[in-house]
Computed example of a mutant assay.
Amino acid sequence: MAAAARVLHEQGVERTTLADIAREAEVPVGNVYYYFKTKDELVQAALAEHTAHLDELTGRLDELADPRDRLKGLIAAWVEQRDVAARSGCPTGTLAAELGKRADGTLDAEAGAVIRRLLEWAAAQFRELDLADQDPGTGPDDLALTLVAGYQGMSLLAHALRDPDVMTREGARLLRWLDGLK
Rank of each mutant, 00 (worst) to 15 (best):
A2M: 07
A4W: 00
A4Y: 04
A5V: 00
L8M: 04
E10Y: 09
G12C: 09
G12V: 02
V13Q: 08
V13T: 03
E14C: 10
T16L: 09
T17E: 03
L18M: 15
D20A: 14
I21Y: 03
R23P: 08
R23H: 13
E24D: 03
A25K: 05
E26T: 05
V27P: 13
V27N: 03
G30F: 01
G30L: 08
Y33S: 00
Y33M: 02
F36S: 01
T38N: 03
L42R: 05
V43Y: 04
Q44N: 11
A46N: 04
L47T: 04
L47H: 06
A52L: 09
L54D: 12
G59C: 02
D62K: 02
D62V: 02
E63S: 12
D66Q: 01
R68C: 02
R68P: 13
K72S: 15
K72D: 07
I75F: 06
A76N: 14
A76L: 13
W78C: 15
W78I: 14
V79S: 05
D83H: 08
V84L: 14
A85H: 12
A86T: 05
A86H: 06
S88K: 10
S88N: 08
G89F: 09
T92C: 07
T94G: 12
T94E: 12
L95V: 07
L95D: 00
G100P: 03
R102N: 04
A103C: 04
D104Y: 08
G105W: 03
G105M: 00
T106K: 07
A109V: 12
E110I: 07
A111L: 02
G112S: 02
G112A: 00
A113D: 00
A113S: 08
A113H: 05
V114T: 10
V114D: 05
V114P: 08
I115N: 04
R117Q: 11
R117C: 10
L118W: 04
L119T: 12
W121E: 07
W121Y: 10
F126Q: 10
D130L: 02
D130A: 15
A132Q: 05
A132M: 07
D133Y: 02
Q134T: 15
D135M: 08
T138W: 06
G139Q: 07
D142V: 06
D142K: 03
D142L: 11
D142A: 14
L143Q: 10
L143R: 09
L145V: 08
L145F: 10
V148H: 03
A149Q: 04
G150N: 04
Y151E: 06
G153Q: 03
M154G: 06
L156R: 15
H159S: 12
H159A: 09
D163P: 10
P164G: 02
D165Y: 08
D165W: 03
V166W: 06
T168N: 09
R169L: 12
R169H: 14
E170A: 15
A172C: 07
L174K: 11
L175S: 13
L175D: 15
L178R: 02
D179Q: 01
L181G: 10
L181A: 01
